[in-house]
Design a protein around this nucleic acid. Structure first.
Length: 934
RNA sequence: GCCGGUGUGGCGAAAUGGAAGACGCACGGGACUUAAAAUCCCGGGACCGUAAAAAGUCGUGUCGGUUCGAAUCCGACCACCGGCACCA
């Protein structure tokens, strides 16, 4: 670190103005109906007064950061990158006259605090509170203009009460495929009979919705005595199977030795990553959210929002829409048929065998006696593998013949049915028709097991080998008595064969998504408990029921031991008194995942203290920008409503950002919010790398601690450097030398304004002063006498207005690095002026203020007191506008190019006409040799 | 393998069809200083030249194309980064 002399007394200036802003409530954002004190600078700027019957708020601007998980390690340099960018824009928008909402909070549920509790017995709430205090201190020392009256933490009972409430909204809703939206569960109509066909067994395939069967359906099938009591149970099971929040059996990894479930990533070669203990697949009852119902809308609505191309692509890939057909294959000598999904129905004539996922329900029903032993041992082997091993595309294909055959519906061929783990139970129907001629995986499998391979597509280039050709071409060898695809290009062949299949009721057009329903329960302590209880009906059937809204929030019990129980039950199950209710019902003991709280926090900020609702309607209308009397025109940046700008890391591209959009759409359908999308514009800040260009990590020893930088250079320099490094969206390496560069720039700004004699006096006084008086000593520092109330020269005005123009345009385009270089250009220029006109330097401070607010406030203050002007609040001073007339040059330097090569630079009057210009260019001595004779 | 992004001085970068390298870092020279730090001033793409200049040539990952003119637009390729990955 540098031993350089301090450039300016930031150590006094920064705390001084942070205190000032807090005392004045400078950055408080006002809701409709709030009584705004007349003396508040926002009220003064906009002529608002609490006495006015209906104060008219200016247009809103909602600028949001991804709230942090307050870890024990404290802030790292990556956090302030996005936070600085949003702070600059928040301050800029305030100066432009917007009512700016810029809040901060804590995503505070999470595993680290719980693991610490398991080790030490300290309650996670205590750890969390300590970490929040550290984070808050660090964030506040950066001088961000958050409205701290809106601070929230997802772990506050007042907050998670509403997380639980929103869960109940999901629980009490179903997705109506006819209206394509969520509706209250009461609108669900029961079908004439309540034995929904098992999707895998039904010819013609299931209805809309995921293929996963809820346990309710299973219960119904196994208890089908035709008595009234059971009719009620059936109705309930049907209803429960349609809810947006439903229960399902899911296999998870269970480690006996560790007494906990493990994530897929934590399991390696059938052993736990930690301790190398054996793990087993164990089906567990899990809560799921029906996000798949929204796949289409989540995909389509991406077109209505301003997110980066790559981020949208990530979400599109994650949702994974593919168009194709579902086709039925009759099983030979059996009542059953196999449904398959294919994107290439045009290759149906090339289907020479079929493959079921090992877990497919039909396997048990069709396997022949001779093959049963082989099939069972294969299934056991597969069950032991981790998902990662199973889905490793590089590994060799494995599989076993079931002994059964199916009939290819287009040519009546008898084809073998195999099981293999390259077919996933969780995608499509869990079964495929194998076309080894034109599918890489099928070809590999067919070659290994000697299955027939035939050509049905001709590649456009006849020299290409048709074997394994998977792209579009011309159909061949695809004829039966009724239909011929031969000669048709792939696209037309698809259309023709699907039409034929539909007319024969052998298949239908289908769309499939990769997106799976969201596994929403965790066996953890430190999360939101579900507002759900379990009961038994008179027949002994277990069922779940929502707790009434009036008992929310459901608080977690206190425990002394936070470890998971040995039975695999969540730790909450240990609190017997908490689990059992007087009426004999028992509480759900799973908790919600960490994503739950972050799914809607941006809505709570709007009206954080509301006791009666998750957010206030009026506040929601105003801040989310739904057109209304309060908000007649959407902001300039966001023509469609929502959060105007959301900045955060790319690591949430498909988790938080997809989940939050999903919840928001459910709330929109139910009338709880007024916009279909939550975040209109979203920007991902790039990663800050270590000085060595590598990702920062403890093990590399290249981690930069913001506290060290702040201590040495102050927060203005830190903020400025984070923005000056390069474009916000790019990854870029840290350079402490670079911090020194912008720090020197701030020193030059300081010296541009202050009298150095007075500063020397200040420095001497400071070394002898008592600690608590130091801040007042800043008043010893005087403005330099070279700043005068004189008329600026034309040149000076030009320099200023060029700077205004550049900074303003760059802020609108989020180009902070070039905006800062424009400020540097101004200062470099202004340093050469002997007399500095006040009317030029004041607007410069306004331009500087969003970037380096503390030094700007201090100098703004000095400028006003030196000229005995009444001090207007810098934060609300109207943003300067550039005058294009002042930027016009009398003469211009015009480069003259001949055939694209620079040959001369000529100086002409700005008013010169085209022909004058040409004449001047032709007359140039340097140009002549190049145009002679041409 | 598929999808997306990025390639410009010693380094971070700027310029998005019209003077390549703004601004900053590092470096070199000078002023101030007993000296250093800090500060202020000057200079830095390469080659070829020259006592020093000037003039000239080349130069934005590689190769090709469009254009009076290309870092920028188009095509092919290479490298790196990120995401997904047996999704039928």
């Amino acid at each position: 670190m540098s031993s350089s002399r301090r450039q300016y007394p930031f150590h006094l200036i920064e705390p001084k103005w942070q205190k000032f802003w807090e005392e004045q409530q400078t950055f408080r954002a006002w809701n409709p109906g709030d009584p705004i004190p007349a003396e508040h600078p926002f009220a003064q700027r906009h002529g608002l007064s609490a006495k006015a019957a209906e104060p008219q708020l200016p247009p809103k601007f909602y600028i949001l950061d991804m709230f942090p998980y307050p870890s024990g390690a404290g802030l790292h340099v990556g956090h302030p990158e996005g936070y600085t960018a949003t702070d600059i824009l928040a301050r800029y928008r305030r100066a432009l006259g917007y009512n700016v909402l810029h809040p901060m909070g804590w995503d505070a549920f999470g595993l680290p605090a719980e693991q610490y509790a398991v080790k030490t017995g300290q309650h996670p709430r205590k750890t969390t509170e300590e970490n929040i205090a550290t984070f808050k201190r660090q964030i506040q020392s950066l001088g961000f203009s958050y409205d701290w009256t809106r601070e929230l933490a997802t772990t506050d009972p007042d907050y998670f009460k509403w997380t639980q409430w929103i869960f109940l909204r999901l629980y009490n809703s179903w997705f109506n495929p006819e209206t394509n939206k969520a509706e209250p569960i009461e609108t669900l109509r029961y079908p004439p009979e309540f034995r929904p066909p098992h999707p895998a067994l039904s010819p013609g395939g299931g209805e809309a919705g995921p293929a996963v069967a809820g346990p309710g359906e299973g219960d119904t099938a196994s208890n089908s005595q035709p008595i009234d009591r059971d009719l009620e149970a059936k109705r309930r099971a049907y209803r429960d199977s349609k809810r947006l929040a439903y229960v399902s059996e899911q296999p998870v990894w269970w480690c006996e030795a560790l007494g906990t479930v493990l994530a897929n990533e934590e399991v390696i070669d059938g052993k736990s990553e930690v301790g190398d203990h054996p793990v087993v697949r164990k089906p567990m009852r899990q809560w799921m959210l029906r996000i798949t119902a929204y796949a289409e809308r989540l995909l389509n609505d991406l077109d209505t929002i301003e997110w980066s191309h790559s981020l949208k692509e990530m979400q599109r890939n994650w949702i994974g829409r593919s168009e194709g057909a579902e086709v039925q294959f009759q099983i030979l000598n059996s009542q059953f048929s196999i449904a398959v999904f294919t994107t290439r129905p045009d290759t149906l004539f090339g289907a020479t065998y079929m493959v079921l996922a090992p877990e497919h329900d039909l396997v048990e029903l069709i396997v022949t006696a001779e093959q049963r032993a082989a099939v069972n041992s294969y299934k056991t082997e597969v069950a032991k593998k981790s998902d990662r091993e199973r889905t490793d595309a590089a590994k060799e294909k494995t599989g076993v013949f079931t002994g059964a055959y199916a009939i290819n519906p287009v040519n009546g061929e008898k084809i073998q049915i195999w099981i293999a783990d390259y077919v996933l139970a969780s995608y499509g129907t869990g079964a495929i028709m194998a076309v080894p001629g034109h599918d890489t995986r099928d070809l590999e499998f067919a070659q290994k097991f000697n299955l027939p391979i035939i050509q049905v597509v001709q590649p456009p280039d006849p020299t290409t080998d048709w074997r394994g050709f998977v792209d579009e071409g011309i159909a061949v060898n695809s004829v039966n008595e009724e239909i011929s695809l031969d000669g048709l290009p792939t696209r037309e062949a698809k259309r023709k064969i699907i039409d034929w299949l539909e007319s024969k009721r052998l298949g239908k057009r289908t769309i499939n998504y990769k997106l799976r329903d969201w596994l929403f329960s965790r066996q953890r302590y430190w999360g939101e408990p579900f507002p759900i209880v379990w009961k038994r009906d008179a027949s002994g059937n277990l069922y779940h029921e929502a707790l009434p809204e009036s008992v929310l929030p459901v608080l977690p019990p206190s425990l002394t031991d936070y470890k998971p129980t040995s039975t695999g039950e969540p730790p909450l199950a240990r609190a017997k008194d908490w689990v059992s209710l007087p009426d004999g019902s028992t509480r759900e003991t799973n908790t919600m995942p960490q994503w739950a709280g972050s799914c809607w926090y941006y809505l709570r900020y709007l009206d954080v203290k509301n006791k009666d609702a998750f957010t206030g309607k009026e506040a929601e209308h105003y801040w989310m920008g739904a057109p209304s009397a309060l908000n007649p025109q959407p902001s300039t940046l966001s023509p469609t409503p929502g959060v105007d700008l959301y900045v955060g890391g790319t690591e949430h591209a498909v988790l938080h950002l997809l989940y939050a959009r999903f919840w928001h759409k459910v709330l929109y359908d139910l009338g709880d919010v007024s916009t279909p999308e939550p975040f209109f514009k979203l920007v991902n800040q790039g990663l800050i790398l270590g000085e060595d260009g590598q990702k920062m990590s403890k093990s590399r020893g290249n981690v930069i601690n913001p506290d060290d930088i702040l201590k040495e250079y102050g927060s203005d320099a830190f903020r400025l450097y984070e923005m000056f490094m390069g474009p916000l969206q790019d990854a870029k390496p840290w350079s402490t030398k670079g911090v020194e560069g912008v720090y020197r720039f701030l020193g030059r700004v300081w010296r541009l304004f202050v009298d150095d004699k007075s500063e020397t006096e200040f420095e001497q006084a400071e070394t002898t002063a008592k600690t608590q008086r130091r801040e007042e000593l800043l008043e010893l520092i005087e403005l330099t006498p070279s700043i005068k109330e004189t008329e600026p020269t034309k040149e000076q005005l030009k320099v200023l207005h060029a700077c205004i123009k550049k900074v303003t345009e760059d802020l609108d385009g989020l180009r902070f690095n070039t905006a800062i270089s424009a400020l540097m250009v101004f200062v470099n220029e202004a340093m050469t002026w002997e007399v500095k006109p006040l009317s030029v330097l004041k607007p410069f401070l306004q331009l500087l203020a969003p970037f380096a607010p503390h030094i700007a406030e201090e100098l703004w203050d000095k400028v006003h007191s030196a000229f005995r002007a009444s001090r207007s609040a810098l934060a609300y001073a109207p943003w300067p506008k550039h005058d294009p007339a002042l930027l016009v040059e009398d003469t211009l330097e015009i480069p003259v190019q001949v055939n694209g090569k620079l040959r001369d630079v000529i100086t002409v009057a700005a008013t010169a006409s085209q022909s004058e210009l040409e004449a001047a260019a032709m007359a140039s001595e340097k140009v002549k040799p190049f145009i002679d004779g041409k």
